[in-house]
């Protein structure tokens, strides 16, 4: 197993470049399906009458529904050295609710790339920031996420 750095100039050049946008109409069915899959029966995601009587004023998307609203392709593409990938962590910040009927545009920017030795060999960490904007141009949320790529374990 090689311990040499796999970070390329191509990868470094991709830092700070915003992706193509992903454009996502927000549908009630997708919210209900997501809430059911995570096992969260809050009325805010499932019951329009009860949700309308709450401060939210209607059905909203669960906090991690954002995961579904993928940005478009990276403009600056770079080759990944490893096939195996793990999700390292996530930080969401919320500024406004996402409602049924909204259209959310998401873009992602590579913020940093670094390496650390670990249990699975020399691991490649990529820190990305995704921005979610609604049809009114309002920033509704951001996510900073860490992806970890590592060498094949055979």
């Amino acid at each position: 197993m090689s311990e040499d750095s796999v970070i390329t100039d191509e990868m470094r050049a991709a830092i700070g470049v915003e992706s193509e946008p992903g454009v996502w109409p927000i549908e009630l069915g997708a919210i209900k399906k997501f809430a059911n899959a995570i096992g969260d029966s809050s009325v805010l995601y499932t019951d329009e009458v009860a949700a309308r009587q709450s401060p939210a004023g209607g059905i909203i998307a669960p906090p991690t529904f954002l995961r579904l609203l993928s940005p478009g392709a990276h403009k600056a593409t770079y080759k990944m050295p490893y096939r195996e990938v793990l999700d390292g962590g996530s930080e969401y910040e919320y500024f406004a609710p996402i409602r049924v009927g909204d259209t959310i545009t998401s873009t992602v920017t590579l913020v940093d790339v670094f390496e650390k030795p670990g249990r699975l060999g020399l691991m490649l960490f990529r820190l990305n920031e995704t921005r979610y904007v609604n049809q009114f141009g309002q920033l509704v949320a951001t996510q900073r996420s860490t992806s970890i790529n590592y060498p094949d374990q055979e």
């Binding site: 995570i38 009325v43 669960p62 991690t64 995961r67 793990l86 996530s90 969401y92």
Partner: peptide, 26 residues
Amino acid sequence: GALKNAWLAQLVTDWIGTTGTLAKIS
């Protein structure tokens, strides 16, 4: 991992109910 993130978000939103607002989760 994102499903565990969803559960931890639910831990918080179950607690705050419909009158509180989740501002940040890491």
